[in-house]
Amino acid sequence: MSAPLRVPVLLTLLVVCGTTAVVRAETPPINYMLQCQGCHLADGAGSPGAVPPLRNLVGKFLRVPGGREYLIRVPGSAQSALSNRELAELLSWIIRRFGPEQDAANLAPFTAEEVGSARGRPLVDVDSVRRDLLRRIAARDLSSSGPEGP
């Protein structure tokens, strides 16, 4: 389309397509897509060196104190455009979706209350908190039942 026509046509389209400021509640799979999948990817693999994987790992954070809160306060969660209830449902879905299986099976579902109280303080230093949690997870697994399988 010629340049002079493009702007008014697009403008009309945008007006006709209506306001998009309304945030509508979606199901967890769709919320995962819209809020997380772009970086963590559909299979939860993440991006090496840039985006942590969820696959076979995210559930482990529930094994140690502070891990649950970490999953809420990490900025990707805390800052998502979701209500507390939607975020709680999404986090539970993520645990079940990506495991490990044992953590999915033992999951105490996230509640809107705990999400609401933690997400107001998004983590500033994610790296050292995450490193510390992983260290404690490894230590706990070592002491309880031997090294964790892949």
Binding site: P29, I30, L34
Partner: peptide, 20 residues
């Protein structure tokens, strides 16, 4: 297209219970 938003029956396979 990777999914259908705000649909009764989601076209996306949903492992796990998907309910809450």
């Amino acid at each position: 297209v990777v999914g259908v938003a705000a649909s009764e029956q989601s076209d996306v396979s949903d492992p796990g219970t998907g309910e809450e």
